[in-house]
Simulated scan of single mutants.
Amino acid sequence: MGGWEPDEAFLQSGSVNDTPAMPQSSPTTAPPEGVAYPKTIKSYVTRAGRTTTGQAKALQEWGPLYVLPFRPEPLDLDATFQRDPGHPAPTILEIGFGMGDATAHIAALMPEKNFIGCEVHEPGVGALLKHIGERGLTNLRIVQHDAVEVLDQMLQPGSLAGVHIFFPDPWHKKRHHKRRLIQPDFVRKLTGFLRPLGADGKPGGYLHCATDWQPYAEQMLAVLSAEPALRNTATDYAPRPAYRPETKFERRGLRLGHGVWDLVFERV
Score class of each variant (00 low, 15 high):
Met154Glu: 11
Thr91Asn: 04
Ile92Val: 03
Ser43Ala: 08
Val125Asn: 05
Trp62Glu: 09
Asp101Gln: 00
Glu149Asp: 15
Ala242Glu: 15
Phe249His: 08
Gly204Ile: 09
Val150Ile: 14
Leu140Ala: 00
Glu61Tyr: 02
Pro6Cys: 00
Pro90Val: 06
Ile182Leu: 03
Gly14Val: 04
Gly63Glu: 00
Ala199Asn: 10
Asp236Cys: 06
Ala242Lys: 15
Asp185Phe: 08
Leu11Lys: 02
Lys113Ile: 10
Phe97Thr: 00
Phe115Tyr: 06
Pro32Asn: 08
Thr52Trp: 01
Gly204Met: 10
Met22Phe: 13
Thr80Asp: 07
Met22Asn: 14
Leu221Lys: 09
Val260Gln: 05
Ala21Glu: 11
Asp152Pro: 11
Pro215Tyr: 08
Glu227Tyr: 03
Glu8His: 09
Arg252Ser: 12
Gly192His: 04
Pro123Tyr: 04
Thr191Ile: 07
Ala102Tyr: 01
Thr28Ser: 10
Ala234Trp: 03
Val260Pro: 02
Ala102His: 03
Asp262Val: 12
Thr91His: 05
Gly124Val: 02
Lys113Asp: 11
Asp152Tyr: 13
Thr235Tyr: 07
Tyr37Val: 14
Gly204Thr: 08
Gly257Val: 02
Arg180Lys: 04
Pro32Ile: 05
Phe167Glu: 01
Glu149Cys: 13
Arg240Tyr: 13
Arg252Val: 08
His105Cys: 06
Lys202Asn: 15
Lys113Val: 13
Gly205Gln: 06
Val143Thr: 13
Leu140Lys: 01
Pro23Asp: 08
Pro228Glu: 09
Lys113Cys: 13
Lys173Pro: 02
Thr211Val: 00
Leu151Asn: 07
Leu207Lys: 06
Pro239Asn: 14
Asn114Leu: 07
Leu11Val: 02
Glu246Ala: 15
Gly204Pro: 13
Asn232Glu: 07
Ala89Ile: 12
Arg195Ile: 10
Arg195Glu: 08
Gln214Val: 09
Glu112Pro: 10
Asp7Gly: 02
His164Glu: 00
Thr233Asp: 10
Lys113Phe: 13
Ala226Asn: 06
Val120Ile: 15
Tyr66Cys: 15
Leu194Glu: 03
Met22Lys: 15
Tyr206Trp: 13
Glu246Ile: 11
Gly259Thr: 03
Val268Gln: 15
Pro168Lys: 09
Phe167Arg: 01
Arg141Asn: 08
Glu73Tyr: 13
Ser43Met: 09
Gln144Ser: 13
Arg231Lys: 11
Thr103Phe: 08
Glu134Leu: 02
Ser15Glu: 03
Lys189His: 05
Pro69Met: 14
Trp261Tyr: 05
Phe265Tyr: 10
Gly253His: 03
Glu246Ser: 15
Gly162Val: 00
Trp261Ser: 03
Gln219Lys: 12
Lys202Cys: 14
Asp18Tyr: 10
Ala238Val: 11
Pro215His: 10
Trp213Gly: 06
Gly126Lys: 00
Gly14His: 05
Asp152Gln: 15
Ala89Ser: 11
